[in-house]
Design a protein around this nucleic acid. Structure first.
Lengths: 265, 265
DNA sequence: GTTTTTTGTGATTAATCGGGTGACAATACT
DNA sequence: AGTATTGTCACCCGATTAATCACAAAAAAC
């Protein structure tokens, strides 16, 4: 009827606040207060459906985060900071922790990441896969072969490719339609474009990558019900590294063979 | 002896990962794996002291976040992404949620924040107070009077003042020593500087703000044991808004009186 | 000034979640 | 074959959070 839809801004806001680590009560209290601007425990309880007696705890929590100010009167009144300021507060907090994390990890990680030989690894989720691909692109010295369905050829990926091209890496890109090809020639003029190497199976289309002939990744898109906090597990990928790596060997064979066929036509 | 110090990078990394919402096991597992680069459940369990049987759950959690890739062999092997990439992953995730939160709050917040009349509000914690002050600075049209102990005159605050000055707001700044005054004249030449209006009580020194003669804030620093997630509750402040607001009335009286005395000397 | 309502605090219970341990079948090693 | 390792499950415990209630202090109404 009135508030059962999932695209209700109130619901969305609560969801996000909880993601940032607030308790459910605190989140709902803040949202209520934000739409009131100012209010007493009773008023908040009425619009948020948080038990009145627990509004006080919720407010304490919010006050500790600096999201709510308190007026010491009776009845107490509460005041929510602006949406703008909420963003800034979390940003602050986030940067703080991100920096500490980064330096801590740097301090303990004396590992060469570019060395694996045996083994095929799996990654799930579109964002995680994209991240991994970008990482490979950054390490590319010589050549990138990349084949993808168009929906997955995002701005991010294009930037990664362009950056590599600027470093002098040769780009071979396939699987995109004519209109998109034109656009790419514009952004990365150095890139070689080729038609799909084979008929991309319609249903499970994904992407296919080879860097410097030694690192390869293949992904397929799947329909999966289970959604996780970080990733909408809709794509799944495997990758391998090193000259003798089995996945690398196979894909290199295919790519080399088909690419020669295509580019020499 | 070996690992009981709080500045151990491993400990710090675990702490931060937990802040981002990972379980303790997942955090310790990741740190162990990060320093190994690659490893089996057993190896991880040995260096992280996570029960071996629980390493698998932890890895699942990390895999969902896209922080760890899995090799489907027996024994399974796990692979941690680089420190650099961890940062990027969380950044992504964070921006996602921050944006959703911001738009959701904007969608429901039709509140004029510049309107309160009665009431004196309290804020605790240096960061929260600074945030509030910057908010006031941004809304300033005419004049900012700001008096502070030097430790609290941060870069942020100076930027806020400079931005206001650029908008044509007149700045009156007090309570800082000669060397710092020189620096300020450099950054904000338009600012009027004045000596402390009165002897700033040594112990409970803090800050004192008035914007456009209608918004005021006073803070004092306190020694408090209770530290909160967001803020090291070391400073506490009250603020009020509106012409008839009691705090405003009092501070305006003081400021006007003393400022005239000082600036006309 | 007394009654009645409202307000703030604290205690209590139930449910959920993460930490910790062990049983056990499947798998690899000898 | 027999032994050791590995991965999955199920269980228990303690901490946290949601949810309700009891009650004293404070306002408001009479």
């Amino acid at each position: 009827m009135s508030t059962d839809q999932t695209d209700d801004p109130r619901f969305a806001a609560v969801e996000q606040l909880e993601w940032f680590g607030l308790s459910g009560y605190a989140a709902r209290t803040f949202v209520a207060l934000a739409s009131l601007g100012t209010g007493t425990a009773r008023a908040i309880s009425e619009v948020s459906e948080v038990p009145r007696t627990r509004v006080y705890d919720a407010i304490d929590e919010l006050h500790d985060w600096g999201l709510v100010d308190i007026q010491q009167s009776s009845p107490k009144e509460f005041w929510a900071i602006s949406a703008e300021t909420v963003g800034r507060t979390f940003e602050h907090e986030f940067q703080q922790h991100a920096n500490r994390l980064r330096t801590a990890l740097d301090d303990l990680e004396p590992v060469d990441h570019r060395a694996e030989q045996r083994g095929v690894w799996t990654v799930d989720g579109e964002t995680a896969i994209t991240t991994r691909i970008l990482e490979f692109f950054e390490g590319a010295d010589d050549e990138i072969v990349y084949m993808t369905v168009e929906e997955l050829l995002t701005e991010e990926i294009l930037e990664g490719l362009a950056a590599a091209a600027d470093r002098g890496v040769s780009i071979k890109l396939g699987g995109v339609s004519q209109p998109v090809q034109d656009r790419i020639q514009d952004v990365i003029p150095e890139a070689t474009l080729f038609e799909s190497l084979w008929v991309w199976s319609e249903t499970a289309a994904g992407r296919l990558m080879m860097v410097d002939g030694t690192q390869t990744l293949v992904s397929a898109r799947v329909t999966d019900a289970a959604a996780t906090p970080a990733s909408p597990r809709s794509e799944t990928a495997i990758w391998g590294m090193g000259n003798s790596n089995s996945l690398v060997v196979i894909l290199r064979a295919i790519f080399t063979w088909r690419l020669e066929a295509v580019t020499s036509e």
